[in-house]
Amino acid sequence: MIKKLHDIGLRSEHAYTAAVASIGLSVLTWAASLRAEPGRGLDRADRWGIFVGEWAPTFFGLGLALSHYEQEEGSLMGKAHADGARKRDVVGA
Rank of each mutant, 00 (worst) to 15 (best):
G61W: 13
P57Q: 08
A36I: 00
Y16D: 06
A36M: 06
S75A: 08
F60L: 11
L10G: 00
V90L: 14
R11Y: 04
V91H: 04
A21K: 13
R86V: 07
A93I: 05
I8G: 00
R40M: 14
S67E: 13
A93N: 10
S22Q: 02
H68E: 10
R86Q: 11
L34N: 15
V27K: 00
G41K: 01
D89L: 15
D89A: 13
L28W: 08
A80V: 03
F51G: 09
T17K: 06
D46N: 15
P57W: 06
K79L: 13
F51P: 03
M77I: 10
Q71S: 05
S26A: 11
A65V: 09
S67D: 12
K87Y: 09
T29V: 15
R47H: 14
F60T: 08
G53P: 01
G78V: 01
G63E: 08
D89V: 09
G61H: 14
L5I: 05
L10R: 02
Q71C: 02
Q71P: 00
G74Q: 15
F51C: 04
H14E: 02
A56G: 02
R44C: 01
R44D: 02
V20Q: 11
V20P: 01
A21V: 12
A18Y: 05
A85S: 10
A82F: 03
D7P: 05
E54I: 07
A82R: 09
I8P: 00
R88M: 10
L25K: 05
W30M: 15
Y16S: 04
D89T: 10
L62P: 02
K4M: 10
G9A: 10
S22M: 07
S22E: 05
H14I: 02
R35C: 10
W48M: 12
P38W: 00
I2S: 00
R35M: 09
G74A: 15
Y69F: 15
R47N: 14
G78P: 00
A82K: 08
Q71W: 10
L34P: 08
A45M: 11
W48Q: 10
G61R: 15
P57E: 08
G78W: 01
A15P: 02
E54L: 13
H81M: 11
S22R: 02
T17P: 00
R11I: 04
R40K: 11
R86W: 06
